[in-house]
Amino acid sequence: MRKWLFFAPLAIFLGVSVFLFTGLFSDPWTRDSALLNRPLPEFDLPDLMQPEQRWNRELLTGEPFLLSVWGVWCPTCKAQLGFMTELKEQGVKVVGLYYPLPVDPAFGDHFSLGQLQRDVQRELAYFGNPYQFNILDENRRLSLDLGVSGSPETFLVDANGKIRMHHVGDINPRVWRQKFEPAFEQLQQVGLAYQGAQP
């Protein structure tokens, strides 16, 4: 008992050290999305550029894709456009979910779709356009259902419309290589095998 007590402070010190040391490398921002391995939520939203075209969950299934939540007001989203355009050229399907800022009519603000379309076009022409199309998330309703806390955020969705991966922050070469690429390739192969099995 006595001997055991003699080593207790050392043991406690080592325990606390290990705990605090691992804390140095933990990121309070990374937490798993509550929607992992669940299907995309139901939605019915217009296309950003052709508002008469409407998108829903069923129209998005069929092949794996990246759902990228972004906005022209968000600097990090600009920074990732170049690399995501490269991904598109490699054959990765990227769908944009446009996250508009709230407008406060009390301050004389109003939402202008035409102005937004011009801003988006200018920005994509300048930084690169990775998007096959953009869905306009009116009132950020789908973003709320997706548990989005800001932008940029990216979801990897499989061919059946199930969410397989979630990333908060920009997509850069390192994140793509380490986090997305293996899973994306696997999903693509599964998809091809599935299509091959279809008569």
Binding site: P28, L101, P102, N139, R140, S143, L144, V148, S149, G150
Partner: peptide, 16 residues
């Protein structure tokens, strides 16, 4: 990180 949605004026808090 450590604000309730009553205190915060982040877009997501407004939506929530």
């Amino acid at each position: 990180q450590n604000q309730n949605i009553a205190d915060s004026n982040a877009v997501v808090s407004i939506d929530m």
